[in-house]
Each structure stands twice: as structure tokens, then as C-alpha cells.
Amino acid sequence: MSSVEAETTERRPAPRDDTHKTEYEILDRIIADMGDALVVDECYVHVQPRRVFVRVHPDRLREFIQYMQREHDMWQFGTLSGRDLGEELQANYHFFLNSQRVAITIRVNVPRDRPEYPSITDLVPGAEFVENEIRELFGIVPVGHPNPRRCELPENWPRGEYPLRKDWSDPRGLMERSKTTGPKPREEM
């Protein structure tokens, strides 16, 4: 499935009714205040209750996070998940607006040949481990991370191999072997 198709079909916006009133109020306010920093076509309220998704231009991400912290009292950080969309890679920051009880996902798309965007660890200290994780597993580099280090993969993992990308070809047969119950080959013991 191409990235464009996947992008268009997996979004399931909710109708503007009473059950999603709070979510639409938040989204409308965000678009009114920071509309130029967003990709407005890809910002929507999901049919699942209490879920808002917004996409931000990578160079405006820090500004947007600061705006959310200032205006919407956003302090609860969930996690950061990477996506491989084919042409582009995507970083999804999951935050929760605790007082309004809404989960907001702030996402940035970065091109595959230059996957860089500004780190937000100094604004949100809770993102330290997960930003290291996305750099290792997806090769998406949060530029300006205060403490870049290897945290998930083994020390001898080769450079430039990112296992959670869809095109990772598993050159050493790790996935095949992990499904068997037999012993490891002798040279790895």
C-alpha cells in the first residue's frame, strides 16, 4: 500500500456532534491560533472519544509545543511513536490534556533522505528516552537532543541499520531465528 493511500484511508474524522464537542473546541482554537504552523488538512478529531490528531511543520514544532504548554496547560507526556510511511518518516508525540481529558497526538513528517527535526527534550524532559529510541529504531534524528546515546539496541548493532523501518531487510536472519526454539549457532554463544 502506498503512503498516500494509507494516509488518506486511516484517518477517521468524527462528525461534529455533541459527543465530540470538547475535542472540536480544542481543535478549532488550535487552528485559529496556530493555523500557519499546521498542515490543516491532516488535523482532525477521531471518532474514538477524546482523541485529537494534529500535524505540525517540523520547523515550527518547538513553537507549537510551547504554545500548547502556555495556552492549554499541556504537561502530561505519553510517548513518542515512529511511523514509516514510505517516502516520509513520521514522529508522533502523544500528549494528554489532563484537565480537558483529551489525548492529543502531535506529529511531524520528515523526508526519508534527511530525517531531522528539532528535539523537544529541553521543553518536555520526559521525552529523553523515547527520542533516543526513535533515533535508533527509525533513524529519525531529533536535532539538539541533550544526551544522545544508545539505549535499546545492542552495542555492536551496525550503523545505518534501522530495524523498525519497513525496508529493513534483516541481513543477519535475526527474525527467522527468533521464531525457532532451537539453540543459537555456536559462533554467537
Binding site: 486511516e10 484517518r11 477521531h46 474514538q48 482523541r51 490528531f53 505519553g78 510517548t79 502523544h94 489525548a103
Partner: peptide
């Protein structure tokens, strides 16, 4: 095709599953 964020309060705290189908 859908994307969901499932949350649950595990004994140790909040568990998040972000699932894209």
C-alpha cells in the same frame, strides 16, 4: 484502516498502545 490510541491503567501506571491498522 484506522489509527487508535488505547490507554489503560496498569498496576504500575498508564499503558499506551498506539495501533495503526
Amino acid at each position: 484502516p484506522n489509527e487508535v490510541l488505547a490507554r489503560h491503567e496498569a498496576p504500575r501506571g498508564e499503558l499506551i498502545h498506539y495501533l495503526v491498522t
